[in-house]
Design a protein around this nucleic acid. Structure first.
Lengths: 192, 192
DNA sequence: CCGAAGTGGTAGACAGTGTCTACGTCCGGC
DNA sequence: GCCGGACGTAGACACTGTCTACCACTTCGG
């Protein structure tokens, strides 16, 4: 079905990405992935010695995907840092909300052998981008610190929102005010 | 060992709290809890029809524990809202970092039948407290919105910190600057 | 006083999981 | 031509959550 020419390794990741997108992180069973890829349950072991390594490969797709979206969203630099940060924040929240399963997987450190693998590096370019923009928007402050807090803020909004916390009013678009609040807080209010 | 007088129901929760604190959320197997409680693997079913309900009961302990710590931390109101918010934030981060397993469990909505149970209500008093303090510290702003963003910020800091992201410098105490940054952002800088 | 009904826990079965190991089954190079 | 390795299969094992039949024990009604 999906890319019949490439090898099994890539096909397993493809299947995993589709599966986590469609059914969430708990559906990412080793055997189910193998089933959907049309191979026996022992086959993935040839390429991924353990279940966690396969999940990590799938999550890495999510990180690169997100980084690509973010890079595209901030554009070529014709707009103000604040506008670009808003675009970036919206992209992050949009990704987290439309790809819940993938976003959940990406931050399930218990599934992702997060320590000894190059997974943190995958999220680093996004952070660097953030640091750069924050540095432009607020030259006075410690850009790394503010960027870290802002990233945490975005992440927390996505998390709590998905979780159903943040018991705010029930307006149609509830996420935009929160994004604006977080940006105003970290960058100073207004159009600046 | 632990409270031999009370019934099995409470003992199961006790064992679960100990276990998640000591070994993390993935150690909370139904059978392991039963084992440590000294009963057969079918016994918990008498009180918790499903595994998720037992986990929810354990997580609820975490929420009430956190709420109690927060209430104690903010004190009796002799200090400024900003100071009390700082105490509250520090308490939250402290709890998340010293009780990683519990904090992880508390936000694993896939394990917690988070929809149709009174679990959100358990985290609501903490949010109300936050809204109240934010309202005092910043009478001009929409307290619910700012409080929501601040809570998300705290939560994100805890999450990303635990996860090993936030690749900041390697100083001894790294969490305090982040907390200060988040508070300054949402409340305005300085001693105010 | 004694049997009946319900409470609280046991034990075994079942399907499903991740991992391991032994076994095939090709295919290319000497 | 055959031989070694790459690639995948198939079955076993221990473990999980859920279900069901069973049993010991209390408690209560006649």
């Amino acid at each position: 079905m999906t890319d019949p020419e490439t090898g099994l390794r890539a096909r397993l990741i493809d299947v995993g990405v589709d599966l986590v997108t469609a059914e969430g992180a708990q559906a990412l069973t080793l055997r189910e992935i193998a089933r959907r890829a049309g191979v026996s349950h022992g086959a993935p072991r040839r390429y991924f010695p353990t279940h966690l390594e396969l999940l990590s490969a799938i999550a890495r797709r999510g990180f690169t995907d997100l980084a690509a979206r973010a890079a595209e969203a901030v554009g070529d630099g014709r707009t103000s840092p604040r506008e670009r940060l808003e675009a970036l924040g919206r992209t992050y929240l949009d990704f987290a909300l439309t790809h819940r399963g993938m976003h959940e997987l990406m931050f399930r450190h218990d599934l992702l052998e997060s320590g000894h693998l190059g997974l943190r590096e995958t999220s680093l370019p996004l952070f660097s981008l953030l640091v750069d923009l924050v540095g432009r928007a607020r030259p006075d402050a410690d850009a790394r610190l503010v960027a870290g807090s802002l990233l945490a803020n975005l992440h927390g909004i996505a998390q709590l929102w998905t979780w159903g916390s943040l018991p705010l009013a029930t307006g149609a678009d509830e996420i935009t005010p929160l994004l604006r609040t977080a940006l105003d807080a970290h960058l100073g209010p207004g159009a600046r």
